[in-house]
């Protein structure tokens, strides 16, 4: 087997999976606290355009990523205020966030269409980057990809090994009980939602700064929704989210290679694959209703009335 032949394919899978890892991991934490934020797509787009604009203005990749996270958090804050502060419907508000994000990013990005960016710098790590096979595959990437490698571990450690993570899971399992014991349910959910916003923003930054290295209107192309599906697919477990993201990364790049292998399928049908795969995966996972019910945070999507 000639590794060099497969290297580009494998690298493309990683780049396709990385934004999904960020967005889905953020949404996982949000949902674990009992909040369903359907606005991932909108937060991603806002993050993508803000990150790109920040880089264009400051020429600093770090500031670009920070700006994207801040933008994601700001949009998440609007969502959180409506849902947690004013008790608006989570489904409706999430949809509103997506629609708003699409419009806002298009407006903010109109002057940036056509500007090209060199892409985030690739970081060579000492020793490991020189390893045969693994070096070029795993250690010739930009900082965001490395971050996406460690993010599932960090989230898993936080949720299952720390007291704060235990409290967050408890709030998602029963907000009434958590409130009765004296935990600040609303504040915890604010934080979890903001984390989700930051990660979605970062996913957007990866799209505009690394994946495409330019801003295109509506460039997330449904990845925010796929990230939402991934969380269900992973039954709310961090490592399975990572696995799912790479599975989807693999499907996404199929379209790029189909022609190379001489498969004469119109490109549109190849582009449909990730969306169809999302449906198939959702069907497979949700067939077993009791499995979803056991794993899903019990309070997900339910409004919390502290006085009750």
């Amino acid at each position: 087997m000639n590794f060099d032949l497969y290297l580009p394919t494998l690298l493309t899978i990683i780049t396709a999976a990385t934004p999904l890892v960020f967005a889905a991991m953020g949404e996982l934490v949000t949902e674990k606290s009992g909040v369903l934020n359907l606005g991932v797509e909108g937060m991603m787009l806002t993050g993508a355009v803000t990150g790109f604009a920040a880089v264009v203005v400051t020429d600093s990749a770090i500031l670009g990523c920070l700006a994207a996270m801040a933008a994601g958090m700001l949009t998440a804050l609007i969502f959180a205020f409506l849902v947690l502060g004013l008790q608006a419907s989570q489904v409706a508000t999430g949809l509103a966030l997506t629609l708003f994000g699409i419009g806002l990013s298009a407006l903010l990005g109109q002057d940036m269409v056509g500007i090209a960016y060199a892409g985030l710098p690739k970081l060579q790590l000492p020793i490991v980057s020189d390893l045969p096979v693994l070096g070029p595959l795993l250690f010739h990437h930009d900082a965001l990809v490395y971050l996406s490698f460690v993010l599932p571990a960090a989230v898993a450690w936080f949720l299952y090994r720390t007291r704060a993570g235990l409290i967050l899971r408890a709030v998602g399992d029963s907000h009434d009980a958590a409130h009765a014991i004296g935990y600040p349910v609303i504040a915890i959910r604010y934080m979890a939602t903001l984390f989700g916003g930051a990660m979605s923003g970062l996913a957007g930054a990866y799209l505009s700064l690394s994946y495409s290295t330019m801003w295109v209107e509506n460039m997330s192309a449904g990845r925010g929704w796929i990230a939402l599906a991934l969380v269900v697919f992973a039954t709310w477990r961090p490592w399975r989210v990572m696995f799912g993201a790479y599975l989807f990364g693999g499907i996404t790049i199929l379209q790029l290679y189909a022609q190379a292998f001489g498969i004469a399928v119109p490109s549109q049908f190849m582009t449909m694959l990730p969306y169809l795969a999302t449906i198939v995966v959702l069907v497979v996972i949700s067939r077993d209703e009791s499995r979803i019910r056991q794993n899903a945070p019990a309070c997900i999507g339910k409004p919390f009335h502290p006085s009750a």
């Binding site: 609007i78 708003f100 419009g103 806002l104």
Partner: peptide, 16 residues
């Protein structure tokens, strides 16, 4: 794109 922002804002304001 202003149209889209308007529409999104209106829904946010309504929910609020």
């Amino acid at each position: 794109a202003v149209t889209g922002v308007f529409q999104g804002l209106l829904l946010f304001m309504l929910l609020a």
